[in-house]
Design a protein around this nucleic acid. Structure first.
Lengths: 192, 192
DNA sequence: TGAGATTGTAGTAGCAGGTACTAAAAATGC
DNA sequence: GCATTTTTAGTACCTGCTACTACAATCTCA
C-alpha cells in the first residue's frame, strides 16, 4: 500500500488522532460505529482505545453524567461567583475568580463583561449584613480587557449605609492592574 | 400483616414513592442495590420501574449525560444570554430570557441580579455593528425583584455613537412592568 | 371462612456493549 | 525474504438489564 495512489485508510497514528477527536466531539458512539467511521474492524478500535486509555461507551457516558452532576451542584451552590477569600460582614470582602476559556468570547478571547459584574455584584451582596437584599443600582466601569488565565481579585467595601440602602464599592484587579470597578446600591429588607 | 406490630416492609404505594425519591437523589443505583435498600426482590423493583416509567440505570445515566451536554453547549454557544428575538444591527435588538429556578437565590426565590445584567450586556454588545467591542461603562438600575417563571424581555437601542464609543440603552420588562434598565457605553475597535 | 384478585418472587432466554484472551492473516521495515 | 508490527477473527465471559412464564403469598370482601 505504501506509495499507492489510493489510500482510503490512514496510518495508525493518524487514525488514533481521529479516534480521539471523534470520541471527544461525539462521545456517544459505540465501537462498532467508530469502526465503520474509521473503516477498520471493531477489534482495531478496541486496541486503539486500550492504547489511548479511552474508556468504553458506558464509561464515557457515566463520566459525563457524574461530571455534570458535580458541575450543576457547584453552580447551584455558588451563591457567590468566584471564591470568597475574605469576608468581614458589614465592612468588606475579597473574592477570587479565575478566568477560564468558557468565560471568553471565542473571537476575541476577551472575558465577557458580565463575569466581572457577577463577581462584583455577588460579592457586594455577600458583604452586607442583612437577611435579604437585592441590587438596586450599579455603576460599573471596565478599564482594561481581561484574558484567559488571569486571576481576578475583587475587593468590596461598604462605604455608606443609609436606612436600608447600602453603598458598596468594588474594585477588581488582575496580577498587574485594576481592570474593573463598580459602585452598587444594595437594598435590604426584613427585620435585622 | 395488616395491623401487625412489626412491619419492616412498606406497602406498594409507599415503596414506589421511596423508589422515585431514591432514584431522583441517587440515580446511579442498580436494580439490585435498590432491591436491597427497599428489602424486596429485584423483580419487584423492575415491575415498579415499569409502572412508574423509570428507565433502567444505563438509560438514566445516558439521559443525564445528554442533558448535561445540551446544557454545556447552550451555555458555551450562547454568546448572547437569553434568546435573540429581533436584531437590527446598528440600531436595536430584543432578547428573551426565561427565569428558571437555578437563576434565583434559594433563600428568597429572587433572581440574581447578574442575570438581568448579563442579558442586557450581551444584547447591547450584539446590536452594535462592529467586529470587536467590549463594555466600557454600565449604569444599571433594578426596579423590581424578578421571580422564577417570569419572562424577561430586554429591548436595546443605540442612542448615540461617538467615534468608537456606542451609547446603548436597555430596558427590561416582564409581563407587567419594567424591572430593570441599563445604559452602556461600549467601546469598539478593529477596522470597520 | 374461603374464592378471587392483587402483589411479590423465582427463574429462564435473550440483548447491548463491552473485556480479556488466543490465534492467525496481512502489511511493513529493512 | 524474513522478522516485526498491525490488523482481523473468533471465543468465553461480564453487567445490567428486558421480556416472559410460572407460581407463591397476601389481601379483600362477600
Amino acid at each position: 500500500m505504501q506509495g499507492g495512489v489510493w489510500m482510503a485508510r490512514v496510518k495508525k497514528k493518524e487514525r488514533q488522532r481521529l479516534l480521539l477527536e471523534q470520541v471527544k466531539t461525539k462521545p456517544f458512539l459505540t465501537d462498532e460505529e467508530l469502526a465503520k467511521y474509521l473503516e477498520v474492524s471493531v477489534q482495531t478500535i478496541r486496541l486503539d482505545r486500550l492504547e489511548l486509555g479511552i474508556p468504553e461507551l458506558r464509561g464515557r457516558i457515566r463520566n459525563m453524567a457524574e461530571k455534570a452532576q458535580n458541575k450543576v451542584k457547584s453552580i447551584q451552590s455558588g451563591e457567590v461567583v468566584g471564591e470568597l477569600i475574605d469576608l468581614e460582614l458589614g465592612h468588606s470582602g475579597i473574592s477570587l475568580l479565575r478566568v477560564t476559556d468558557d468565560m471568553v468570547f471565542a473571537k476575541t478571547q476577551i472575558a465577557k463583561g458580565h463575569y466581572m459584574f457577577s463577581q462584583a455584584n455577588s460579592l457586594a451582596l455577600a458583604v452586607i449584613d442583612a437577611p435579604m437584599a437585592v441590587t438596586g443600582v450599579a455603576n460599573v466601569k471596565y478599564k482594561v480587557p481581561v484574558h484567559v488565565g488571569e486571576k481576578l481579585i475583587a475587593k468590596a467595601e461598604i462605604v455608606k449605609v443609609r436606612g436600608n440602602k447600602y453603598f458598596v464599592w468594588v474594585k477588581t484587579h488582575n496580577e498587574t492592574q485594576e481592570v474593573f470597578r463598580a459602585k452598587f446600591i444594595m437594598v435590604s429588607w426584613g427585620e435585622k
